[in-house]
Simulated assay, not measured.
Amino acid sequence: MCHNHSEAPELGEGLTVTTCRTIGVDPVPYLHFGSEETTNVDVIVLMTDIFGVNPFYRHLSGLLVAEGYQVVMPDMFHRLGAAAPGRDGALARRARLDDPLAMDDVERVIERTTDGNRRFGVLGFCIGGSFALLSAATHRNQVTATYYAFPKGSPGAKVPVTEPLEVAGSIAGPVLGHWGRQDYIDAGEVEELAKVLDTAPGETEVRWYSDAGHSFLAGLTENPQDSVGAAADSWRRTLAFMGSHLTPATRG
Protein backbone atom coordinates (compact mmCIF):
# COMPACT_ATOMS: atom_id res chain seq x y z
CA MET A 1 0.00 0.00 0.00
CA CYS A 2 1.51 3.28 -1.12
CA HIS A 3 5.25 3.82 -0.90
CA ASN A 4 6.28 3.00 2.66
CA HIS A 5 8.38 0.04 1.52
CA SER A 6 9.52 1.35 -1.86
CA GLU A 7 13.26 1.26 -2.43
CA ALA A 8 15.02 4.61 -2.36
CA PRO A 9 18.58 5.05 -3.68
CA GLU A 10 20.87 7.55 -2.04
CA LEU A 11 20.28 11.19 -2.93
CA GLY A 12 22.58 12.51 -5.65
CA GLU A 13 25.57 14.73 -5.09
CA GLY A 14 24.99 18.48 -5.17
CA LEU A 15 21.44 18.17 -3.84
CA THR A 16 20.54 20.41 -0.92
CA VAL A 17 17.68 19.50 1.44
CA THR A 18 16.50 22.19 3.83
CA THR A 19 13.87 21.97 6.54
CA CYS A 20 11.69 25.09 6.36
CA ARG A 21 8.49 26.49 7.86
CA THR A 22 5.85 28.90 6.71
CA ILE A 23 5.82 32.28 8.42
CA GLY A 24 3.26 33.62 10.87
CA VAL A 25 1.15 31.87 13.47
CA ASP A 26 1.07 28.05 13.52
CA PRO A 27 3.88 27.52 10.97
CA VAL A 28 3.72 24.53 8.63
CA PRO A 29 6.93 22.49 8.13
CA TYR A 30 8.11 21.51 4.67
CA LEU A 31 11.28 20.30 2.98
CA HIS A 32 12.95 22.24 0.19
CA PHE A 33 15.06 20.33 -2.35
CA GLY A 34 17.36 22.17 -4.72
CA SER A 35 20.84 22.66 -6.10
CA GLU A 36 23.05 25.48 -7.28
CA GLU A 37 21.44 25.18 -10.71
CA THR A 38 17.84 25.40 -9.51
CA THR A 39 17.87 28.76 -7.74
CA ASN A 40 14.88 30.86 -8.83
CA VAL A 41 13.51 28.23 -11.22
CA ASP A 42 9.99 26.78 -11.30
CA VAL A 43 8.78 24.93 -8.21
CA ILE A 44 7.10 21.52 -8.00
CA VAL A 45 5.13 20.81 -4.82
CA LEU A 46 5.17 17.10 -3.95
CA MET A 47 2.19 15.84 -1.94
CA THR A 48 2.77 12.44 -0.35
CA ASP A 49 0.58 9.44 0.41
CA ILE A 50 -0.65 8.55 3.92
CA PHE A 51 2.82 7.48 5.02
CA GLY A 52 3.99 11.06 4.66
CA VAL A 53 7.55 12.22 4.07
CA ASN A 54 9.77 9.17 3.54
CA PRO A 55 12.90 8.09 1.62
CA PHE A 56 11.00 7.22 -1.58
CA TYR A 57 9.58 10.71 -1.91
CA ARG A 58 12.94 12.22 -1.06
CA HIS A 59 14.35 10.16 -3.93
CA LEU A 60 11.67 11.41 -6.33
CA SER A 61 12.41 14.96 -5.22
CA GLY A 62 16.07 14.41 -6.05
CA LEU A 63 15.12 13.16 -9.51
CA LEU A 64 13.04 16.27 -10.10
CA VAL A 65 15.89 18.52 -8.95
CA ALA A 66 18.14 16.70 -11.42
CA GLU A 67 15.63 17.69 -14.11
CA GLY A 68 16.09 21.34 -13.16
CA TYR A 69 13.30 22.11 -10.70
CA GLN A 70 13.02 23.20 -7.10
CA VAL A 71 10.86 20.82 -5.04
CA VAL A 72 8.95 21.48 -1.84
CA MET A 73 7.31 18.72 0.21
CA PRO A 74 4.74 19.74 2.85
CA ASP A 75 4.40 17.60 5.95
CA MET A 76 0.65 17.09 5.83
CA PHE A 77 0.67 15.09 9.07
CA HIS A 78 2.82 17.42 11.19
CA ARG A 79 -0.02 18.13 13.62
CA LEU A 80 -0.38 14.41 14.41
CA GLY A 81 3.24 13.36 14.87
CA ALA A 82 4.83 10.18 13.59
CA ALA A 83 2.63 7.22 12.69
CA ALA A 84 2.98 3.86 14.41
CA PRO A 85 4.89 1.37 12.23
CA GLY A 86 3.27 -0.31 9.25
CA ARG A 87 0.06 0.05 7.30
CA ASP A 88 -2.19 -0.09 10.36
CA GLY A 89 -0.26 2.73 11.99
CA ALA A 90 -0.54 4.91 8.90
CA LEU A 91 -4.27 4.23 8.60
CA ALA A 92 -4.80 5.04 12.28
CA ARG A 93 -3.02 8.37 11.87
CA ARG A 94 -4.92 9.07 8.69
CA ALA A 95 -8.18 8.54 10.62
CA ARG A 96 -7.21 11.46 12.87
CA LEU A 97 -6.48 13.85 9.99
CA ASP A 98 -8.64 16.93 9.52
CA ASP A 99 -8.50 17.11 5.72
CA PRO A 100 -9.65 20.74 5.36
CA LEU A 101 -6.99 21.81 7.86
CA ALA A 102 -4.36 19.74 6.02
CA MET A 103 -5.41 21.35 2.74
CA ASP A 104 -5.07 24.76 4.37
CA ASP A 105 -1.54 23.80 5.44
CA VAL A 106 -0.71 22.82 1.86
CA GLU A 107 -2.09 26.11 0.57
CA ARG A 108 0.10 28.02 3.00
CA VAL A 109 3.18 26.17 1.72
CA ILE A 110 2.17 26.94 -1.88
CA GLU A 111 1.70 30.61 -1.01
CA ARG A 112 5.08 30.69 0.74
CA THR A 113 7.11 28.93 -1.96
CA THR A 114 5.57 29.95 -5.31
CA ASP A 115 5.05 33.18 -7.20
CA GLY A 116 1.35 33.89 -7.53
CA ASN A 117 1.75 34.98 -11.15
CA ARG A 118 4.10 32.21 -12.23
CA ARG A 119 3.25 28.63 -13.12
CA PHE A 120 4.19 25.94 -10.64
CA GLY A 121 3.83 22.19 -10.57
CA VAL A 122 2.11 19.84 -8.14
CA LEU A 123 2.82 16.10 -8.08
CA GLY A 124 0.49 14.17 -5.77
CA PHE A 125 0.17 10.53 -4.71
CA CYS A 126 -2.89 8.78 -3.26
CA ILE A 127 -4.32 11.21 -0.67
CA GLY A 128 -1.82 13.75 -1.97
CA GLY A 129 -3.14 13.16 -5.48
CA SER A 130 -6.65 13.97 -4.31
CA PHE A 131 -5.39 17.09 -2.57
CA ALA A 132 -3.52 18.06 -5.74
CA LEU A 133 -6.76 18.04 -7.75
CA LEU A 134 -8.47 20.21 -5.14
CA SER A 135 -5.58 22.64 -5.22
CA ALA A 136 -5.72 22.74 -9.02
CA ALA A 137 -9.30 23.98 -8.85
CA THR A 138 -8.15 27.11 -6.98
CA HIS A 139 -4.93 27.88 -8.85
CA ARG A 140 -5.20 28.69 -12.54
CA ASN A 141 -1.41 28.62 -12.84
CA GLN A 142 -0.98 25.12 -11.37
CA VAL A 143 0.35 22.24 -13.48
CA THR A 144 -0.92 19.02 -11.90
CA ALA A 145 0.22 15.40 -12.18
CA THR A 146 -1.28 12.71 -9.96
CA TYR A 147 -0.83 9.03 -9.19
CA TYR A 148 -3.66 6.90 -7.76
CA ALA A 149 -5.81 9.88 -6.73
CA PHE A 150 -9.23 9.17 -5.21
CA PRO A 151 -11.98 10.82 -7.30
CA LYS A 152 -14.31 10.93 -4.29
CA GLY A 153 -11.60 11.86 -1.82
CA SER A 154 -9.22 9.69 0.15
CA PRO A 155 -11.32 7.59 2.57
CA GLY A 156 -11.04 7.52 6.34
CA ALA A 157 -10.66 11.21 7.21
CA LYS A 158 -11.64 12.51 10.63
CA VAL A 159 -13.04 15.55 8.82
CA PRO A 160 -13.55 15.05 5.07
CA VAL A 161 -12.87 17.66 2.43
CA THR A 162 -14.58 18.43 -0.88
CA GLU A 163 -14.46 15.56 -3.38
CA PRO A 164 -12.24 16.12 -6.44
CA LEU A 165 -15.21 15.09 -8.58
CA GLU A 166 -17.11 18.14 -7.35
CA VAL A 167 -14.49 20.63 -8.50
CA ALA A 168 -12.73 18.90 -11.40
CA GLY A 169 -14.83 20.69 -14.01
CA SER A 170 -13.45 24.06 -12.92
CA ILE A 171 -9.74 23.18 -13.19
CA ALA A 172 -8.15 25.69 -15.56
CA GLY A 173 -4.57 24.37 -15.61
CA PRO A 174 -3.26 21.21 -17.27
CA VAL A 175 -3.77 17.85 -15.52
CA LEU A 176 -2.18 14.43 -16.06
CA GLY A 177 -3.49 11.51 -13.99
CA HIS A 178 -2.15 7.94 -13.74
CA TRP A 179 -4.13 4.91 -12.52
CA GLY A 180 -3.69 1.14 -12.67
CA ARG A 181 -6.49 -1.22 -13.66
CA GLN A 182 -5.49 -3.57 -10.81
CA ASP A 183 -5.81 -0.84 -8.19
CA TYR A 184 -8.44 -1.05 -5.45
CA ILE A 185 -9.61 2.46 -6.37
CA ASP A 186 -12.97 2.13 -8.12
CA ALA A 187 -12.34 2.31 -11.87
CA GLY A 188 -15.86 3.59 -12.47
CA GLU A 189 -15.15 6.59 -10.26
CA VAL A 190 -11.97 7.31 -12.21
CA GLU A 191 -13.86 7.12 -15.50
CA GLU A 192 -16.44 9.51 -14.06
CA LEU A 193 -13.64 11.87 -13.06
CA ALA A 194 -12.16 11.63 -16.55
CA LYS A 195 -15.49 12.70 -18.05
CA VAL A 196 -15.73 15.69 -15.73
CA LEU A 197 -12.12 16.66 -16.48
CA ASP A 198 -12.97 16.59 -20.18
CA THR A 199 -15.36 19.49 -19.53
CA ALA A 200 -12.74 21.53 -17.66
CA PRO A 201 -11.13 24.59 -19.28
CA GLY A 202 -7.63 23.13 -18.98
CA GLU A 203 -5.84 20.40 -20.93
CA THR A 204 -6.37 17.03 -19.22
CA GLU A 205 -5.24 13.44 -19.78
CA VAL A 206 -6.01 10.24 -17.88
CA ARG A 207 -3.56 7.36 -18.33
CA TRP A 208 -4.50 3.75 -17.53
CA TYR A 209 -2.01 0.90 -16.99
CA SER A 210 -3.70 -2.47 -17.44
CA ASP A 211 -1.40 -4.64 -15.32
CA ALA A 212 -0.60 -2.07 -12.61
CA GLY A 213 -1.95 -1.85 -9.09
CA HIS A 214 -1.68 0.75 -6.38
CA SER A 215 1.79 2.23 -5.85
CA PHE A 216 3.04 1.01 -9.21
CA LEU A 217 5.61 3.81 -9.39
CA ALA A 218 7.63 1.71 -6.93
CA GLY A 219 8.91 -0.07 -10.04
CA LEU A 220 10.99 3.00 -10.78
CA THR A 221 13.47 1.90 -8.11
CA GLU A 222 12.56 -1.77 -7.63
CA ASN A 223 12.90 -2.62 -11.34
CA PRO A 224 15.12 0.13 -12.77
CA GLN A 225 16.00 -1.96 -15.84
CA ASP A 226 12.34 -2.11 -16.91
CA SER A 227 12.11 0.70 -19.45
CA VAL A 228 8.62 -0.11 -20.74
CA GLY A 229 6.59 -0.93 -17.61
CA ALA A 230 3.99 1.29 -15.96
CA ALA A 231 6.50 2.94 -13.62
CA ALA A 232 9.01 3.91 -16.29
CA ASP A 233 6.39 4.92 -18.84
CA SER A 234 4.36 7.04 -16.42
CA TRP A 235 7.46 8.75 -15.05
CA ARG A 236 8.66 9.64 -18.54
CA ARG A 237 5.25 11.07 -19.30
CA THR A 238 5.18 13.00 -16.03
CA LEU A 239 8.57 14.57 -16.74
CA ALA A 240 7.57 15.41 -20.31
CA PHE A 241 4.29 16.88 -19.07
CA MET A 242 6.00 19.07 -16.49
CA GLY A 243 8.64 20.08 -19.01
CA SER A 244 6.02 21.16 -21.54
CA HIS A 245 4.41 23.57 -19.07
CA LEU A 246 7.21 24.61 -16.73
CA THR A 247 10.73 25.93 -17.32
CA PRO A 248 13.46 23.89 -15.60
CA ALA A 249 17.00 25.17 -15.13
CA THR A 250 18.37 22.84 -17.81
CA ARG A 251 16.63 24.88 -20.47
CA GLY A 252 18.77 27.89 -19.67
Results as ranks from 00 to 15, higher is better:
72 V>I: 10
72 V>E: 08
72 V>H: 09
75 D>C: 03
81 G>Y: 00
84 A>G: 12
89 G>N: 05
90 A>F: 06
91 L>M: 10
91 L>N: 08
92 A>R: 04
96 R>F: 09
97 L>C: 13
99 D>H: 08
101 L>A: 15
103 M>T: 07
104 D>K: 11
105 D>T: 07
105 D>G: 12
106 V>K: 03
107 E>I: 01
107 E>H: 09
108 R>C: 12
108 R>A: 15
108 R>L: 07
111 E>S: 13
111 E>V: 12
115 D>A: 11
117 N>T: 09
121 G>E: 13
124 G>I: 04
124 G>C: 08
125 F>K: 10
125 F>C: 14
127 I>K: 04
128 G>Y: 09
129 G>L: 05
130 S>I: 07
130 S>K: 05
132 A>M: 04
133 L>D: 03
133 L>G: 05
134 L>I: 11
135 S>V: 13
136 A>G: 15
138 T>V: 12
138 T>K: 15
139 H>Q: 12
140 R>Q: 13
141 N>M: 00
142 Q>H: 05
142 Q>L: 14
142 Q>C: 15
145 A>F: 03
148 Y>C: 12
149 A>I: 02
149 A>N: 01
150 F>Q: 01
150 F>Y: 15
153 G>F: 10
154 S>V: 07
158 K>E: 14
159 V>F: 11
159 V>K: 10
159 V>A: 06
159 V>Q: 11
161 V>N: 13
164 P>K: 02
164 P>M: 00
165 L>T: 11
165 L>W: 04
167 V>Q: 04
168 A>V: 02
169 G>N: 05
171 I>G: 00
171 I>P: 01
172 A>T: 09
176 L>G: 12
178 H>G: 14
179 W>T: 04
180 G>Y: 02
182 Q>T: 02
184 Y>G: 13
185 I>K: 00
189 E>P: 01
190 V>M: 01
191 E>D: 15
192 E>K: 13
195 K>F: 03
197 L>F: 05
198 D>S: 14
200 A>V: 11
